[in-house]
Design a protein around this nucleic acid. Sequence first.
DNA 1: TTATAAAATGTAATCGGTTACATTTAGTAT
DNA 2: ATACTAAATGTAACCGATTACATTTTATAA
Lengths: 336, 336
Amino acid sequence: MVKMSDVAEKANVSKATVSRVLRNPETVKKTTRDKVLAIIEQLNYQPNILARHFRRSETNTILVVIPNILNTVFSHILGGIEHEAGKHGYRVLLANTNRQVEKEYEFLDHLKQRQVDGMILLSARMDKSVLYDVMKQYPVVLTADYLEGIPIPTVTIDNVSSGRTATEHLIKLGHSRIAHITGPLHLLVSQDRLKGYRQALLQNDLDVDNILIQEGDFTHESGYNQMTKLLALEHPPTAVFSANDEMATGIIKAAKDHGLSVPEDLAVVGFDNVKLSAIYDPGITTIAQPMFEMGNKAMEILLHQINGDDSCKKQYVLQNELVIRESCGAKRKNNS
Amino acid sequence: MVKMSDVAEKANVSKATVSRVLRNPETVKKTTRDKVLAIIEQLNYQPNILARHFRRSETNTILVVIPNILNTVFSHILGGIEHEAGKHGYRVLLANTNRQVEKEYEFLDHLKQRQVDGMILLSARMDKSVLYDVMKQYPVVLTADYLEGIPIPTVTIDNVSSGRTATEHLIKLGHSRIAHITGPLHLLVSQDRLKGYRQALLQNDLDVDNILIQEGDFTHESGYNQMTKLLALEHPPTAVFSANDEMATGIIKAAKDHGLSVPEDLAVVGFDNVKLSAIYDPGITTIAQPMFEMGNKAMEILLHQINGDDSCKKQYVLQNELVIRESCGAKRKNNS
DNA sequence: TTATAAAATGTAATCGGTTACATTTAGTAT
DNA sequence: ATACTAAATGTAACCGATTACATTTTATAA
């Protein structure tokens, strides 16, 4: 393997000059620079990146902690991170936690051992004080998830207002008995969507009937099961706001199996705007999270931190959007 | 940052001994080992992994080249890789090509610069001779995709027989006019599924009508469009074999929009068994690829190669399975 | 107890770029 | 032409763990 000293020797310059040609070309006179570059070309010299990483103690690699790669919301965000990282010559290391907190702690070691230059969390279940200590010392950004009470840089949407928007949309369509199937309620995201749902009802002088609020776990199956429960009620809802799209498909399935049709007998609004919501029949009205942009922004902020600019350590709230499809009935042809 | 020499000094031993305690504990006497471990604990010493990587020129990291993270088939495989890698203390670097060949070439440099110990390709568009040269020198495994004519270690399913199975299933259900919407035909995977479709028809004395074979690109939209074309035929098909599940949803949508119901008027079989096929209404009968296992196996083989065992450099064919749901009509209650 | 082999530990070179600092060369003004 | 500054290049220390080889300690046998 040809090394820097080989190039230096052949070019009649010192290793230092070769190094400069590669890292600070502008500090080397054009003639020598060209000479060195020619030799590099000729010998097909590839710098040993490991040596560089070691010496500079930086890796040009960042770590993304993902609770579940199979969830397309996360893979979209990952796509955004990847895109932005690639533009700046950074690599992305993947860390799948499968929702286990211990894994999160484990991956922290990568940061502490300087194996990566920074970390983007797509889930923060670890102890707040631990996370706080980490973020004081290392570049960290949180996205998709968020935490209260600690000033960690975060990129999200406003889930409360999104939940309100979704619910208000159903109210405007004339519904007054609106159910909500939530995500896992230990997640702030789920709590906030629920909060938005409540606000919308109250602001429109509608009762909040707790029986209409059921906790799901973001899976199709939980949507199906909880909806089945709701349909067995004496006064079943005429509309449902689902905390994500996959559960919405379960809800629709349950309604159909119960002999109801969507949106005629039951209006449904989902959340996330993953491809599934566009593909499903009926198309699912949903709140679009700018997933790719979230990833992009998170990476952008992380890069700033890595480069020593801490002015970006803030909370960023991106815009969400209501995407109207068939499942809510707004597009129904023979409808007022 | 406390380093190995600090530990050595405090423990009254040499750096070498500390190093051995960490890497070859059995070569150190129990008493000294315990003493050193205690100091390590006490000083909270974390070895500098970058120095180790540099010195040993190995990284415990592998690279996964993915054409598209958003495709759940790939993320399932990635999940399998991640799982197996984690078990052996390896990290997974992600490389998203977005189907650009240039990107594949670019990521090869990671291997050549020894930034990773090996590479798993989920797509091989690059020049065969280049790939061949690479695989002779470095640990490489191909999965999800495959190539003819070069002996690169590969993990796949038999797409020809899978295509045949899917088609035969429709034939057994009494269909004789069966269409096939293929994947992009520059992919061997798509060609093979088509081959299987042809074989099934021929072996059952049915004509292969080329008008019933339409090329899609694995998206819902292409399924929809191609099916719409097929339905406009004078003799439209009564069944369709789709080269993946997402296109199957487009096919079903097109049929519905055309006033047909699935499976009564049109039977559909998909491919992949991604969650979508289970969630969709109707549930899609499909060929299950053991995606997670493919990833697992690919990683396993790669690890063997990394450890210098080249006996595993073979082609591995995993079992696929027909998963019967509603879309093919086999489960139809009032059916013969 | 002494000789000898085996086990444990130490010494010091090494991996290959990077960079602070020293030195040389080129450029500019007087 | 001289003095002085800026640009270009060289020298050598350095990052921190690993490991071949040398040396010391311990165990075993005679």
